[in-house]
Simulated assay, not measured.
Amino acid sequence: MTGSPTSIVEAAFQYYRAQDHDAAVVLYADDFSFTSPQDDHIGKAAFFERCFPTANRFKEQRLLHVTPVDQELVFVCYEYELLSGERHRNVEMITVRDGLIREVQVFFGGKV
């Protein structure tokens, strides 16, 4: 995909929420790495197997801030509501290089 790192990140979130695997997978580099409090530097295949299919547990997800930090790094703060009614916020640091998402680091927030 061509575009700014911010537009690539926004597209990735859109495809995640829509569970459009085919559109999403091409946004991620083959050497992609995903880290969260539950996952330690997992690769692209593990991410799409474990993490990508989880959108069905959300009632809604809103991007609050999508902020470019430099030429490659984008900070994203989002809020989501689970089907249970609980609301949470998370922050992600996403590295986009040469039009592909190379790394995502997720920092879980608490209930809102």
Rank of each mutant, 00 (worst) to 15 (best):
F13I: 14
Q14I: 01
Q14N: 04
Y15G: 02
Y15H: 12
Y15C: 05
Y16L: 12
Y16D: 03
R17E: 05
R17I: 00
A18S: 05
A18G: 00
Q19N: 12
Q19R: 14
Q19H: 12
H21C: 10
A23S: 15
A23E: 13
A24P: 03
V25E: 07
V25L: 07
L27G: 00
Y28I: 02
A29R: 01
A29M: 02
D30F: 08
D30M: 09
D31S: 09
D31I: 08
F32E: 00
F32Y: 02
F32A: 02
S33D: 09
F34A: 05
T35G: 14
T35A: 13
T35Y: 08
S36Y: 10
P37T: 10
P37N: 10
Q38C: 05
Q38N: 11
Q38H: 08
D39M: 05
D40P: 00
D40K: 03
H41W: 09
H41I: 05
I42C: 04
I42Y: 02
G43L: 09
A45H: 12
A46M: 03
A46L: 09
F48M: 09
E49R: 13
E49F: 13
R50P: 02
C51Y: 09
T54Q: 13
T54C: 06
A55M: 01
A55N: 07
A55S: 05
N56W: 14
N56C: 12
N56A: 14
N56Q: 15
N56E: 15
R57T: 12
R57D: 12
F58P: 02
F58G: 05
F58T: 03
F58L: 12
E60F: 07
E60K: 04
E60R: 09
Q61K: 07
R62V: 03
R62D: 13
R62S: 07
R62G: 02
L64G: 09
L64M: 14
H65R: 11
T67W: 10
T67R: 08
P68K: 04
P68G: 05
V69K: 06
Q71G: 11
L73Y: 07
V74K: 02
F75G: 04
F75M: 08
V76L: 11
V76D: 06
C77F: 12
Y78I: 03
E79D: 04
E79H: 03
Y80H: 15
L82R: 11
L83E: 13
G85T: 14
G85R: 13
E86G: 07
E86V: 04
H88C: 13
V91Y: 08
V96E: 01
R97Y: 10
R97T: 07
R97K: 08
D98G: 04
L100I: 01
I101H: 01
I101M: 03
R102G: 07
R102A: 13
R102I: 14
